[in-house]
């Protein structure tokens, strides 16, 4: 009984002391008003995606140079209209959220053939150390979920059927933490309004490219380019992959229907899959 009393007593005492100190200490610090105002608009979850150690450090940097917002914006604030408005007010600059808001896209269709048994440490980083992973395609998603560990929004999940990581575009804030995490460099930040997702990273042109590595990858056949009636598909010659013009695309999905290996998908497909 005394134990319980002592422990609760100390707990309450600590809480009371912290509360008192909080009241006694000056709230407005010289030269810190602006930082505090900015910090209040930030989410405060210290995810570190902006490149600063914590939200407060980010706020300090912003207070010094408001232009920083265009280079390393806080992805969470960009999603939240109300926070964004408050941050604009605090910084005194206007922010075009639609320009900066991004989504993560994993450029892999999954199901690349497994060529050897891997029984090592269950992380992509460890698996890649051995012969670039255990799948036939050296650019394949291994599906061990390094990206899903770092996602502060829990927006990434593993599609068990295809053994590939998929991003829930509804939950994703485009913070970019996963981009650095992927040892295969499959994840790219694409504009929020992206309509067509290109699900392959195999770029080298050799023999019949792609086909010998994976049955679900881009074969560089250019069918999507020919199918498009709105000239929204641009063929990038050097890399031999299609690029999709957001402005011109009318979402007719003809390119998706034409693609022989189903390497293209509607960008919002991810939501349906989960």
């Amino acid at each position: 009984m005394t134990t319980v009393l002592v422990l609760t007593g100390i707990g309450f005492a600590c809480a009371a002391i912290i509360y008192c100190v909080n009241i006694v200490l000056p709230h407005k610090v010289q030269g810190l008003e602006k930082t505090e105002e900015i910090a209040n608009t930030l989410p405060g979850m210290n995810c570190g995606a902006c490149g600063y150690p914590g939200c407060f450090a980010y706020a300090q940097a912003l207070a010094k140079s408001p232009d920083l917002i265009s280079q390393s914006p806080c992805a969470v604030v960009l999603q939240d209209a109300e926070r964004l408005e408050r941050l604009e007010k605090a910084l005194g600059v206007s922010i075009d959220a639609s320009e900066m808001s991004k989504r993560a896209l994993i450029h892999c269709n999954g199901n690349s053939e497994i060529v050897c048994d891997y029984s090592g440490i269950k992380t992509c980083k460890a698996a890649v150390q051995l012969l670039k992973g255990y799948r036939k395609c050296p650019y394949a998603c291994l599906g061990l979920g390094d990206c899903l560990e770092v996602c502060p929004q829990s927006a990434i999940s593993i599609d068990e059927e295809k053994k590939v990581a998929v991003v829930d575009v509804e939950k994703c804030t485009g913070c970019g933490l996963c981009v650095a995490e992927c040892p295969q460099k499959l994840i790219e930040l694409v504009p929020e309004g992206t309509k067509i997702a290109f699900l392959c990273s195999y770029k080298p042109l050799r023999d019949i490219p792609g086909r010998e590595k994976c049955d679900f990858g881009c074969t560089h056949c250019r069918k999507c380019y020919k199918a498009c009636e709105d000239e929204a598909v641009v063929w990038k010659k050097e890399e031999a992959i299609p690029e999709f013009d957001i402005e011109k695309c009318t979402l007719c999905h003809k390119c998706i229907d034409e693609c022989p290996n189903n390497t293209l998908a509607s960008f919002t497909r991810v939501k349906a899959a989960v």
């Binding site: 200490l25 000056p26 610090v29």
Partner: peptide, 17 residues
Amino acid sequence: LVIASLVQIVEMAIKRT
């Protein structure tokens, strides 16, 4: 418990002074 609250107090004090 005590160390955690102490560090919290010290951090608050340093931040504001």
